[in-house]
């Protein structure tokens, strides 16, 4: 009994030590974001901000175009999410509940392209988008991500479990497929739509390689692109500003995660890593 108790106590100790180590980078980020530039380079270094300042945050709002970057990130993420919810569920419905010529091929192509990583397509994507004349626009940032094969797969898998009898009954009553889709199928897909929406938002908010390639002027930078370019450019040593930027990118998504963690966790197995 005592042995069991002590094993459990040890587990708690190790887990708590791990937890402290795991959260330390976030704590260090928040502490640093309130330090002045002098204090960040102070020798000996300080743990706690000696004269806390909000200057690093106001710099983002005044000197750096935080409003623009934030709006860009948000607009791109919201449109991407809406597009995915609508289009992926429409395809998912066709693949799960309709019998049609070409279905197997479509499903096969969707499954195969799930595996194609962004690094393979970004060069020709750049050429295509440049050719279309939409480089450095919302269209360039949104269109390539407006649907994703993995979203189609997620919706199809969920819709397979909707009983056919339900749909047949509606069909016999003369309901159109569009009506069945919007009135019966979609309302039943709440959990899948929530998972898809949240994971798409997360992917878009944190997306980097394509926005970096597709945006040419500050007007179109998303938050990660702006932060990365500042961190390797003119603000490379201004850690107060950089850390405040990190706080501004991370906080919304962490808040979203903590309040909706059920859906985040559900989606991992289905969507894998992004």
């Amino acid at each position: 009994m005592t042995k069991l108790l002590s094993a459990r106590a040890l587990t708690y100790v190790v887990l708590t030590a791990g937890l402290v180590a795991w959260l330390a980078p976030f704590a260090w980020m928040v502490l640093g974001s309130f330090k002045t530039q002098d204090e960040i380079f102070a020798d000996p270094p300080t743990w706690w901000p000696q004269s806390p300042t909000g200057g690093n945050f106001t710099r983002w709002l005044t000197e750096l175009n935080f409003g623009t970057f934030f709006t860009n990130s948000l607009v791109v993420a919201v449109i991407t999410v809406l597009g995915n919810l609508l289009f992926c569920s429409m395809v998912g419905y066709a693949l799960a509940k309709m019998d049609f010529a070409g279905k197997r091929i479509l499903l096969g192509v969707v499954l195969v392209t799930i595996m194609v990583p962004g690094v393979v397509t970004f060069v020709p994507l750049f050429v295509i988008v440049a050719k279309m004349g939409i480089l450095d626009s919302y269209a360039a940032l949104v269109l390539p991500f407006l649907t994703q094969p993995v979203g189609v797969f997620l919706m199809r898998q969920f819709m397979l479990d909707i009983p056919d009898s339900l749909l047949e009954a509606a069909r016999i009553d003369g309901a159109s497929e569009l009506r069945i889709f919007t009135r019966i199928v979609l309302p039943l897909c709440g959990p899948a739509l929530a998972t898809l929406g949240i994971l798409t938002f997360l992917g878009s908010w944190n997306n980097f390689l394509w926005p970096l390639v597709a945006s040419q002027t500050e007007e179109m930078y998303t938050l990660p692109v702006a932060l990365s370019l500042y961190s390797t450019g003119q603000y490379a040593t201004d850690y107060g500003t950089l850390l405040a930027g990190a706080v501004l990118i991370i906080t919304p998504i962490l808040a979203l995660f903590v309040s909706l963690q059920r859906y985040f966790v559900q989606g991992i197995a289905t969507m894998g890593l992004k």
Partner: peptide, 11 residues
Amino acid sequence: VTSVVAVSVIW
């Protein structure tokens, strides 16, 4: 769930 760019700045 965090942006790799943001955590890279922290690290």
